[in-house]
Design a protein around this nucleic acid. Structure first.
Length: 503
RNA sequence: GCAGACGUAGCUCAGUUGGUUAGAGCGUCGGAUUGUGGCUCCGAAGGUCGGUGGUUCGAAUCCACUCGUCUGUACCA
């Protein structure tokens, strides 16, 4: 019985989520496998945690604890405990480590990839479900662990095909940022709010420029739509100090370190941070990563809440044009830092930790634009056409398909309605099949099959205008003995392969 | 969250000062051609004009609210 049309269910994707097709899935698999190889090479081992955690295990860093639904997807279990979908891979790892602390080797070096969920306003290229790929060293207090992760991040970028110079790993230290705050008189709990505002302003340097940041440090700033953002309310002298610090990056690491030493000599915490950066700088230098791959940059601000020491960010530096010809910068595709407090909130002992997270979904968009991913067409299966519909003939077609499969050739028999032969070739064409196999009663009597080269045929179709000629000439089609089917298809496939490589 | 712009077929868009049955191109499906992909021609399906309420003899068109999309901004663990 036909329902009223208006009552029919509307097929629709939830806001901020996407379906992925074969090309994208293949590209993602390739990418994940490269990252995995890199992390493995550095001695990290895999681990998986579930999508759900109890909200309080994630909850310490929720923006607003009174509303577990703000920013995260949460639900109540049947025992009324709040659970949430993970919004990153670090908090779940901290829980896993705390829970299995006795049995894990220390330092514990692990990696994992997975989808994370954020219940917030989606935008173009920004979804409510996306993939991250993290590596973490837990139980290692020295900044050499941080330095190692920065170098691994750099290796990962290059193994993914991003050229040296098209990306940079920028490194800073939270203690240095804290030192600057001390110097301008913002130490102490009563200034926590202002410190946050200052850090947020600094974080926008790449987008708003020095002038914009200066406005945000002072009274505030109006955006293009006329909306006003309140500033930190610093005086000119303080604002200039912050800006001087942000622009302290010099030609060389040594110079940057010297600049920083001069700016925050009065702060003990700041000095400590500078020395940590100096140590990391030496390690990068010794390993040869100071050739533009890894850079000490005082303007990096990340993870305002839980980072306690070095912080780093992987940034793409090249520009591309979008479909409207406007320049688009991909910017940050990953980041991380030291989070000495995250595991220990479950424990009675300190557990110094550091880690890095790659934004897989975002990086994939960048790589696709660069042409490093998703370029190759996905080859379809060889399609065996159904000419005769009696059960014996079908069995013969099935046998051909099985022979091809046994030889490792992707193949299928047409499973649609075989009434119209043209539809079968249309289907094969749409699947991007390399060739179709045709055997009607005429061929069967001769002990032959027809192989139709669909790639070559497509090329020839440009030269034929008349439909009658097109149909009768049967372009790019040839007969072979039934026994030689597999060998001939193999031959055709390798010829096509060679053709692709030459173009 | 805040501010602005925009919502008409699967997609891209027309639609006059408010006036009969809301159109086109592309795509989809069917046929010309039940043994050959492309081209060409013919035909069909596809719309509560984002939703609700209001003004009016009459609303895709005007008004209010609401939902959605985009842009900027805020937040981003």
């Amino acid at each position: 019985m036909a329902k009223k049309k208006s009552a029919k269910l509307k097929a629709r994707l939830p806001r901020g989520f996407v379906d992925r097709g074969p090309a994208e899935l293949l590209a993602m698999e390739q990418m994940i496998s490269v990252i995995k190889q890199t992390y493995e090479l550095y001695g990290f081992e895999p681990v998986e945690t579930p999508m759900f955690e109890y909200t309080d295990a994630l909850g310490k860093f929720l923006p607003d604890q009174d509303r577990p639904n703000a920013g995260v997807f949460s639900l109540q279990d049947d025992d009324e405990q709040w659970m949430s979908l993970r919004y990153d891979l670090t908090a779940p790892l901290a829980r896993h480590v705390a829970e299995n602390f006795e049995s894990l080797p220390k330092p514990y070096r692990s990696y994992r990839a997975g989808y994370v969920f954020r219940n917030e306003k989606p935008g173009p290229g920004r979804f409510r479900q996306f993939m991250q790929f993290d590596a973490d060293t837990i139980g290692a207090p020295s900044v050499s662990a941080d330095a190692e992760i920065c170098m691994m991040a750099s290796d990962t970028m290059e193994r993914l095909g991003i050229s040296r110079g098209d990306y940079v790993i920028r490194v800073n230290n939270r203690k240095v940022l804290d030192g600057v705050m001390e110097v301008i008189g913002l130490a102490g709990d009563e200034h926590a709010e202002t410190r946050l505002t200052v850090l947020r302003a600094v974080d926008k340097l790449d987008r708003l420029g020095v002038e914009g940041v200066k406005l945000l440090l002072g009274e505030g700033r109006k955006d293009a739509s006329g909306d006003f953002t309140k500033g930190a309310g610093l005086g000119d002298a303080e604002a200039d100090k912050v800006l001087a610090f942000v622009e302290a990056g010099g030609e060389t690491t040594d110079q940057t370190i010297e600049n920083l030493r001069g700016l925050i000599a009065d702060s003990k915490t700041g000095a400590e941070g500078v020395e940590e950066l100096a140590t990391m700088g030496k390690l990068f230098d010794a390993a040869g990563y100071t050739d533009g791959r890894v850079l000490i940059d005082p303007s990096v601000v990340r993870g305002l809440e839980y980072y306690t020491g070095p912080v780093y960010e992987a940034e793409l530096t090249f520009e591309v044009k979008d479909e409207k010809g406007r320049p688009v910068r991909f910017g940050s595709v990953g980041g991380g830092g030291r989070y000495d407090g995250l595991v220990s909130r479950f424990m009675s002992q300190p557990v110094p930790s550091t880690g890095f997270s790659v934004g897989v979904s975002r990086l994939m968009a960048a790589l696709t634009t660069l042409g490093k991913l998703g370029q190759e067409e996905i080859a379809g299966p060889v399609v065996v056409c159904v000419m005769d519909k009696d059960i014996d003939s079908i069995a013969h077609y099935q046998a051909m398909v099985q022979e091809l499969r046994t030889a490792g050739i992707r193949a299928e028999m047409y499973q649609g309605n075989p009434k119209q032969f043209g539809k079968q070739l249309q289907y094969a064409d749409k699947r991007n099949s390399p060739c179709a196999i045709i055997q009607g009663s005429q061929e069967r009597e001769q002990g032959e099959v027809q192989i139709k080269d669909l790639i070559e045929g497509k090329r020839l179709s440009a030269e034929i205008e008349d439909n009658k000629t097109w149909r009768e000439s049967r372009p790019a089609q040839f007969a072979v003995k039934r026994d030689e089917l597999v060998a001939e298809v193999k031959k055709l496939l390798s010829a096509q392969e060679e053709d692709r490589e030459n173009n």
